[in-house]
């Protein structure tokens, strides 16, 4: 665990009175897939929403502790001391339900981050980003003849890949996926899982899942959370074969969950 991209220090997050994440210390490894698993309501989603400062958008939300982003140049950014807009461009997010912008075409959806932020792109640059990114998410061959159509016409799985493309187009250091396949069928789920494997060369992936199987299939490292606490964290093969904590064992074997 040498090349760390994201590190938390005593991270605690709460909604009003309810503490959702308790004192988490976690280091995410660059260009690997880290899965965060645990039963519903254990704070997995809240945890990753602290990474790109989305948590603070919820009413009465509070965050204590620190989160650091270590960029390729070894420059360390304390994400709670800079502009959240900047953080969110460096740390992208994909949500549970596919949410392409309904008023935009497929093409515009890919470069939505540029359009909405008012960043002007040359036509050739925009074309290049769109093609390259759609190829990365294996969507190019399926949609290259209908780039001007609205994104809402795509199937659920295609929409979700479009949303991944939209996050990737901003060239982030990390993308956070919040149960990205929970609204999809098994075939679309499999495609997304294969996709993540290809993507990790270019971007660090953090995926939240309540599905033990998925965590085992896709991840290099896995973190198990229970009741807001980080119970265990380590390489996936170690945790899945020799969990050192009783709760992890119970979750993996389906006794809790």
């Amino acid at each position: 665990m040498s090349d760390i991209v994201l590190r938390t220090e005593n991270l605690t997050a709460s909604y009003d009175e309810h503490i959702a994440v308790k004192n988490v210390n976690l280091s995410i490894v660059r260009n690997k897939i880290t899965a965060i698993m645990g039963p519903s309501g254990c704070g997995k989603t809240t945890l990753i929403r602290c990474f790109n400062r989305m948590h603070e958008l919820s009413p009465k939300a509070r965050v204590e502790g620190k989160v650091f982003l270590i960029e390729n140049s070894n420059e360390v950014i304390d994400i709670y001391s800079v502009d959240p807009m900047l953080v969110r461009r460096k740390i992208g997010m994909v949500f549970q339900k596919p949410n392409p912008f309904p008023t935009m075409s497929i093409y515009e959806n890919v470069i939505a981050g540029y359009i909405l932020n008012g960043i002007r792109l040359k036509k050739s640059d925009a074309d290049e980003i769109v093609e390259e990114t759609l190829k990365k998410v294996s969507l190019w061959d399926e949609v290259k003849d209908q780039l001007r159509k609205k994104g809402a016409f795509l199937s659920g799985g295609q929409q979700q890949r479009l949303c991944i493309a939209r996050a990737l187009a901003m060239k982030p250091d990390v993308i956070l996926l919040d149960e990205p396949t929970s609204a999809l069928d098994p075939v679309a789920t499999m495609k997304i899982e294969e996709l993540l494997e290809q993507l990790k060369n270019t971007v660090t992936i953090v995926i939240v899942t309540h599905n033990v199987g998925q965590a085992g299939r896709v991840s290099d490292y896995v973190a198990f959370m229970y009741l807001g606490e980080l119970v265990e964290y380590g390489p996936t093969d170690v945790i899945f074969t020799r969990p050192s904590h009783e709760k992890t064992e119970e979750f993996l074997s389906g006794k809790i969950g």
């Binding site: 807009m85 969110r88 949500f95 339900k97 949410n99 981050g113 909405l116 932020n117 008012g118 901003m170």
Partner: peptide, 19 residues
Amino acid sequence: IPHELKEASLALGVPYYKT
């Protein structure tokens, strides 16, 4: 309008008023 749409925009680093 689904809440997710607003979050999608904010998560791209788009300021609130532009969202």
